[in-house]
Simulated assay, not measured.
Amino acid sequence: MAGTDFDAEIRALSATMKTIGQVLDLDQMRLEIAELEDQVGSPDLWDDQENAQRITGRLSQLNGELERFTSLESRIEDLEVLVELASDEGDAESMADAQTELDRIKKSVESLEIRTLLNGEYDSREALVSIRAGAGGVDAADFAESLQRMYVRWAEQHNCPVEVYETSYAEEAGIKSTTFAVKAPYAYGTLSVEAGTHRLVRISPFDNQGRRQTSFAAVEVVPVLEQTDEVDVDENDIKVDVYRSSGPGGQSVNTTDSAVRLTHIPTGTVVSCQNEKSQLQNKAAAMIVLKAKLLALKKAEEAAHLKELKGDVQASWGDQMRNYVLNPYQVVKDLRTGHESGNPSAVFDGDLDPFLEAGIRWRRGTDKADAN
Rank of each mutant, 00 (worst) to 15 (best):
residue 296 A to I: 15
residue 1 M to A: 10
residue 131 I to P: 00
residue 43 P to N: 00
residue 301 E to Y: 14
residue 315 A to I: 05
residue 115 R to H: 04
residue 199 R to T: 02
residue 340 E to F: 04
residue 65 E to A: 03
residue 160 C to V: 15
residue 185 P to N: 10
residue 367 D to N: 13
residue 14 S to F: 15
residue 302 E to R: 06
residue 128 L to R: 03
residue 25 D to M: 13
residue 3 G to F: 14
residue 372 N to Q: 15
residue 279 Q to F: 05
residue 116 T to M: 11
residue 321 M to P: 10
residue 84 E to C: 08
residue 63 N to I: 15
residue 74 S to Y: 15
residue 103 D to K: 07
residue 6 F to P: 08
residue 180 F to W: 02
residue 17 M to R: 03
residue 141 A to W: 02
residue 230 E to F: 05
residue 179 T to P: 00
residue 90 G to S: 07
residue 371 A to W: 13
residue 203 I to L: 13
residue 11 R to D: 13
residue 212 R to P: 02
residue 13 L to C: 03
residue 63 N to L: 14
residue 118 L to A: 11
residue 286 A to I: 01
residue 210 G to L: 04
residue 262 L to P: 03
residue 339 H to A: 11
residue 332 V to A: 01
residue 110 E to V: 07
residue 10 I to R: 01
residue 302 E to S: 02
residue 255 T to Y: 15
residue 292 A to L: 12
residue 287 M to D: 05
residue 317 W to M: 15
residue 258 S to N: 02
residue 238 I to P: 14
residue 92 A to Y: 13
residue 210 G to T: 02
residue 291 K to F: 09
residue 290 L to Q: 06
residue 239 K to E: 05
residue 305 H to M: 09
residue 293 K to F: 11
residue 200 L to W: 04
residue 221 V to Y: 06
residue 16 T to Q: 10
residue 150 M to V: 03
residue 246 S to G: 09
residue 67 E to V: 00
residue 340 E to L: 04
residue 33 I to D: 02
residue 321 M to H: 10
residue 369 A to H: 07
residue 168 S to H: 09
residue 70 T to S: 05
residue 73 E to H: 13
residue 252 S to H: 08
residue 262 L to V: 07
residue 125 R to A: 06
residue 352 L to N: 08
residue 243 Y to I: 06
residue 280 L to G: 11
residue 308 E to A: 12
residue 219 V to L: 05
residue 277 K to S: 14
residue 345 S to V: 13
residue 4 T to D: 08
residue 354 P to I: 06
residue 252 S to V: 00
residue 327 N to Q: 09
residue 66 L to N: 02
residue 266 P to A: 10
residue 283 K to S: 01
residue 213 Q to E: 00
residue 295 L to Y: 05
residue 34 A to H: 01
residue 67 E to H: 04
residue 268 G to A: 00
residue 216 F to N: 01
residue 207 D to W: 09
residue 242 V to G: 11
residue 123 D to V: 00
residue 129 V to A: 04
residue 114 I to T: 07
residue 77 E to R: 11
residue 106 K to Q: 15
residue 154 W to Y: 12
residue 175 I to G: 05
residue 53 Q to M: 10
residue 19 T to I: 14
residue 232 D to R: 03
residue 190 T to C: 09
residue 224 V to N: 04
residue 54 R to A: 08
residue 13 L to A: 06
residue 78 D to Y: 14
residue 124 S to Y: 09
residue 352 L to G: 15
residue 261 R to H: 02
residue 46 W to D: 00
residue 204 S to V: 06
residue 88 D to H: 09
residue 191 L to D: 13
residue 295 L to D: 04
residue 309 L to V: 03
residue 79 L to F: 03
residue 16 T to V: 12
residue 12 A to T: 13
residue 217 A to N: 00
residue 234 D to V: 02
residue 330 Q to P: 05
residue 214 T to D: 03
residue 278 S to I: 03
residue 353 D to P: 02
residue 31 L to P: 07
residue 60 S to H: 12
residue 127 A to E: 02
residue 300 A to M: 14
residue 189 G to W: 03
residue 311 G to S: 08
residue 118 L to P: 12
residue 311 G to P: 14
residue 44 D to F: 11
residue 259 A to W: 01
residue 6 F to G: 02
residue 50 E to S: 01
residue 278 S to G: 01
residue 225 L to S: 11
residue 175 I to L: 09
residue 196 G to S: 03
residue 88 D to N: 11
residue 337 T to R: 04
residue 238 I to Q: 08
